[in-house]
Design a protein around this nucleic acid. Structure first.
Lengths: 139, 139
DNA sequence: CTTGACCCTGTAGTTACCTACAAGGTGTAG
DNA sequence: CTACACCTTGTAGGTAACTACAGGGTCAAG
């Protein structure tokens, strides 16, 4: 839980200082404490949160969806049933994403199996490409 | 393989006509045949491709990454080894996405297990929220 | 043979998410 | 006390991916 300024936080997370301030302005990151000088002071919680945001974005969640995820843990005005319902909805979303990725994975895997690692003339690959095009990347 | 105009394709896929033309302009969709009038004529392959694009986008792939995926099957100037290497790289990417989502899923699942479905006062949830905040959504 | 739903090109506007200044204050090493 | 790297706010610019016209041509039903 060591304190740090925005620059340290930026280096710790790989998220630019301008982006951190942007997140704060738009409510994706809580406003931190300030020094008398006005400098922002962050705890390592902020770093965790930033890392989570980056992860979730890479997985196809928008910033406002990510806010919803945080709302599950942050919202002080929600009761258990509410939190539970929202968690269940998010779980379903995530399960669907996993399922789709898995199907996409299988399509790609099928492609690599048809295509041996050693070099071949294009013609052979073309046949596979063709089959593959028909089979249809059916994600 | 029935032919259709852009409007039919749009209805069949849920992708707007403007978006379809945008994809074509930017090389994400091959230029289709044209009627003497200039009307675009699509086969059901185009519909497959559009659906795939939408799926992949929802899973966090950008349009240019999706182009790379298509390049695996479309590129006539690639040999088997090349195709195979690119397929393997994409497979790794997809595996990483699945892994991250799975970890995220576990965090969320842990949250729901701590939080029984029946209504509770906020206080109990707050404790869980707090714990959860510490445990840290560690995706 | 007109009406209305469709299509064309081209350009400009929108939203989400940053990213880059400008103009100036803060903190600390030498 | 002077560099110099850091911080502040505010505003403006940039990219990806659409989305919405304008101004006009096409086609099938009645």
């Amino acid at each position: 839980m060591k304190a740090m300024t925005i620059g340290k936080l930026s280096k710790a997370t790989g998220v630019g200082t301008e982006t951190i301030r942007y997140y704060e302005r738009n409510g994706f990151l809580p406003a931190p404490e300030r020094l008398p000088s006005g400098y922002r002071v962050y705890s390592s919680d902020a770093a965790k949160r930033l890392k989570f945001i980056k992860e979730a974005q890479a997985l196809g969640f928008t910033l406002s969806e990510i806010s919803e995820l945080f709302a599950l843990t942050d919202d002080p005005g929600a009761d258990c049933a509410d939190v539970n319902a929202r968690a269940a909805a998010k779980l379903t979303e995530i399960d669907e994403k996993i399922e789709r990725l898995t199907r996409m994975r299988e399509s790609l895997d099928r492609l690599s199996r048809y295509c041996p690692a050693d070099e071949h003339p294009i013609t052979e690959c073309s046949i596979i490409n063709h089959l593959y095009g028909k089979a249809g990347f059916d994600a």
